[in-house]
Design a protein around this nucleic acid. Structure first.
Lengths: 136, 136
DNA sequence: ATAATTGCAAATGTTTTGCATATCG
DNA sequence: CGATATGCAAAACATTTGCAATTAT
């Protein structure tokens, strides 16, 4: 699988030391990072990297399709790798945790719904809010 | 159906002139209003009503369950009446329009998906992004 | 050398808040 | 009167941007 860096080069981005560092942190990170999250981690390795750079990098990476921007309804955007298999999010209301899941049937149904309305589905955004079932 | 004002009284809110005015504008409005939208309309009737009051009113109304807060991913929150029949939103990518639709099958499927993950579905948020089909 | 990237501080845009004043019950 | 609600200006935030300085190619 192509590395983030390779994909940057393909898009004609120059690869400075700081950008490399951000890429490294991104590659090692799990889950859904906000700009502040990422900045915190990156600053731990090089305290000269500014928040503005982190924002600019995230924006660029979203534009070249390396990251996907997530919006969970609080007012901070989060990012995740774009090339993961498509999935949606279930938000655990008891602890704020995020469970990822795949549901091809859902996508199929949504496409059909859009079709009924006279539209072609280009994408969707689905977040489930749920509480864990006790017995298990 | 209970009026907004009735529901406010039930929650022990006092009903000043300005709040009544905001309620009136809200009742007559259609669709998904932002705080700025609402303020614009309200100010047309009484230019002494501040944006802060509009925000405070929206927050209160959401807390007492009269309004539902919507987040379409741009960074301004919108509100709609909470007691409308449940529905989701399809966003027309060509003109930014919002089409509301009902899809009980979707809700049913989502509940089942949550169940498979060991959760009980409490709510969800679904936005479809789509383009109109030309021929029709 | 030329173009891309960055830090900093200032600017944005939305929403919230402290406090004194006005209004409600 | 005591409790709420409001206006105003300032504060909070997340995010973006202008510009001069640094780094990449």
């Amino acid at each position: 699988m192509k590395s983030l860096e390779q994909r940057c080069v393909e898009h004609g981005l120059s690869m400075g030391r700081k950008r490399r560092l951000i890429i490294r942190v991104l590659s090692e990170a799990e889950g859904h990072l906000s700009a502040a999250d990422l900045h915190r981690r990156v600053v731990a390795l090089d305290r000269s990297i500014s928040l503005a750079t982190v924002y600019r990098t995230l924006t660029i990476f979203e534009e070249i399709g390396v990251l996907k921007r997530l919006d969970f309804g609080d007012r901070t955007m989060r990012y995740e790798e774009a090339d993961k298999t498509p999935h949606d999010h279930l938000l655990d209301m008891t602890d704020g945790g995020v469970v990822e899941f795949q549901a091809p049937e859902v996508a199929a149904l949504l496409a059909e719904v859009a079709d009924r309305l006279g539209y072609r589905l280009k994408g969707y955004r689905l977040d489930l809010y749920a509480t864990p079932v006790a017995d298990r």
